[in-house]
Structures are given as C-alpha cells and as structure tokens.
C-alpha cells in the first residue's frame, strides 16, 4: 500500500502519473522539483525507510539505455539495460540496491515513450547485431505491474521489433499481463531462485517458490520463452542438498526443452555496496561470514566459490543441455 506519492512538477500532468495517482486515491500527493531532492539526499536510512516506502513519480533524463556491466548478459550479443524503476517491492537481503541507493522509496520514471525511443536508437545504431535489453536491473520487472503497467506498455513495443530481445527478470507471480496476450518470441521471462530455506530467510516478501513455479508452468504452457536465474548462489554447509532439492523441484514442474536460458552466478558484491549493506544489517549472517576481495568485488573465498559453482553447474547439467547454461563470470 502506498501512503505517500511524491510527484515531480514536470510530470504532474503526464497521463501515466494521473493513472498511478488514481490507483492510490487516499495517498498524500506531494509535489517536488526533481526526484533527487528526496531520493538522493544524504542522511537517509534505507532500512528504516524500507518499512514504509513512498512512491516517487519522475521523468528520467539523460542516458536512458546503458550497456550492462561485465558478466550480466547472456552470450556474445550486445547487452543493454534500462531502468524504468528504481528499488523493489521485495526485500532480498543480498540485493545490491540496498547498498546502492540511500533511499528505499520506489522511483517510477513515467516517460516510457522516451525509453522506447532510446531503445529504438540503439537497435538502429547496432543494426544487424543481436541486441538484448534487460529491464530488471534496478527493480523487479513484473512485481509492480498492476501499478506501473510496464509490461503492458513494452510488450507491444518489442513485438514490433523482432530483431531485438528483451528480458523481464522477476521473482513475482504477476503474469496476468503475459497470459492475456499473444506470445512474443523475442521476450524472455526470467525467474530467479534460491533454495527454500535460503529464500525464506533472505528473500523477504517474495512469493513462495511453488507459486513462482506454478506461474512459470502456466507461461511455459502458453509458449512463452522462459529463463532460470540461480544468481546469487548462496553457500551454506549443506548447500548440496538444498540445491539438489531446488533443481529437482524446478524440473519436476518445467520442461527443460522449453527453456531459453539458465544462468548462475556466485554471491558477490562491490566492496563499497557491501560496506553500506553491512552498516544497515550488521547482525546479518550473510555479511558476517568471511568474504574475499578480488578486484574490488567481495565474494566467497575462491575455493568455496568454485566448489559451490562447480556443484551447481554439474547438477544443472543433469537436467538441461549445456548450450543453454550461462555461468556468470566474476573478476578473477
């Protein structure tokens, strides 16, 4: 439930702003000049704010579509991301957003039309190359769909651009918008998972695994291309049993031949973000265990990381062909 809406003066009359405001008739609406006046101020506590975040409606200026950081994309294509939203409805303890932003308020950039133009410019700029556009980098792509209507707005756009691919990355079960329309062959709906015990401990407010699998099954039956993301891989003493169980649960429900891609990557965080997250949650086991710094990135000690990654890779390959498995590469 949103109790407070901050609205940039510049987008106060934007149709999408009006639509969102109408969804929350009881919310207090506060005008601001730029969203950074609220979102980027110093002296904010992400953890306190996360209990009751406000929604900020703003216009995204500047570069709207960016190249993904190394290791994010699948295969050798051109990879871009765009962020129509900052922050997420869910609260995964390993999520880098809580280390990256000072504020836990949600920011929704309502100028979808500008994002679409920027994506079109990239597509024509890299004419002949396969371009991937990821939307779930600074938020969950689908979790806030009833409010943002992001997928509803972007699916027809990508349907009209079959030469480009898009990935909606999510942990949500908000798939109605996908079920209601024809399959778009260049859209991958990618769901992220960690094993049950870890999910229950670290992925607060995220729908249970079985509900996410049910949503995936429905999409698969309709013919949507699906992705599986096991990123981050989280270590714990009996991680083998946990991941074995997760994979067997997943592949009991999903047909491997209907999968577009499966990726996995070890738990890792840029050091500066880790420090912010540790300050917010000094009592969190995930941050208390020993991590190793390699090229400014903290992750498990190398031996442990390799052990977890190798095991999970082996296990996955018992269920899927190697050509759809994409390990995420971390700086050596």
């Amino acid at each position: 439930m949103i109790h407070t809406l901050y609205v940039e003066e510049e987008v106060a009359e934007h149709p999408r702003t009006r639509e969102v405001c109408e969804r929350f008739p009881r919310a207090v609406r506060i005008l601001c000049r730029r969203y950074g006046e609220i979102f980027n101020r110093k002296a904010q506590n992400f953890r306190l704010q996360k209990r009751n975040p406000a929604l900020i409606l703003a216009r995204k200026h500047g570069r709207l579509v960016l190249e993904t950081p190394p290791g994010y994309g699948l295969g050798d294509h051109r990879h871009f991301y765009f962020s129509h939203m900052l922050n997420c409805l869910y609260d995964c303890r390993y999520c880098f957003l809580q280390g990256m932003y000072r504020s836990a308020h949600y920011v929704l950039f309502v100028n979808y039309e500008d994002f679409r133009s920027a994506i079109e410019a990239k597509i024509s700029g890299f004419c002949g190359e396969t371009c991937f556009f990821y939307s779930g980098y600074d938020c969950d792509s689908l979790a806030f769909e009833p409010v943002t209507r992001f997928a509803e707005n972007f699916l027809p756009f990508f349907a009209g651009h079959p030469e480009a691919w898009t990935e909606f990355r999510t942990k949500s079960t908000q798939i109605q918008v996908l079920l209601e329309r024809k399959v778009i062959p260049n859209c991958v709906v990618a769901f992220s998972f960690t094993p049950l015990g870890i999910s229950e401990t670290l992925e607060h407010r995220v729908p249970p695994i079985e509900k996410r699998l049910k949503a995936m099954k429905e999409l698969q039956e309709r013919g949507w291309k699906l992705g599986l993301r096991f990123d981050p891989l989280i270590y714990q003493p009996d991680f083998r049993a946990h991941y074995e169980r997760l994979y067997s649960d997943v592949f009991r429900v999903l047909r491997p031949e209907g999968l577009h891609s499966v990726s996995l990557g070890p738990f890792r965080l840029p050091k500066s973000l880790y420090e912010n997250m540790y300050r917010l949650y000094p009592d969190e086991k995930l941050f208390a265990i020993s991590l190793e710094e390699r090229k400014g990135v903290l992750s498990y000690p190398r031996g442990l990381e390799e052990e977890v990654t190798a095991f999970c890779t082996r296990e996955l390959l018992r269920h899927i062909p190697g050509d759809i498995l994409f390990p995420c590469h971390v700086p050596a």
């Binding site: 015990g197 401990t201 714990q236 003493p237 086991k285 995930l286 208390a288 265990i289 020993s290």
Partner: peptide, 15 residues
C-alpha cells in the same frame, strides 16, 4: 577463528 568457522561450514546462512 572466524574465517575457519565460516569456511569449515559451521556457519549456516539460514535462520
């Protein structure tokens, strides 16, 4: 001591 406890698998992430 903390490092060895972490990597010897005595430290669960759960619970």
């Amino acid at each position: 001591r903390i490092d060895s406890d972490s990597s010897a698998g005595r430290v669960p992430t759960e619970g």
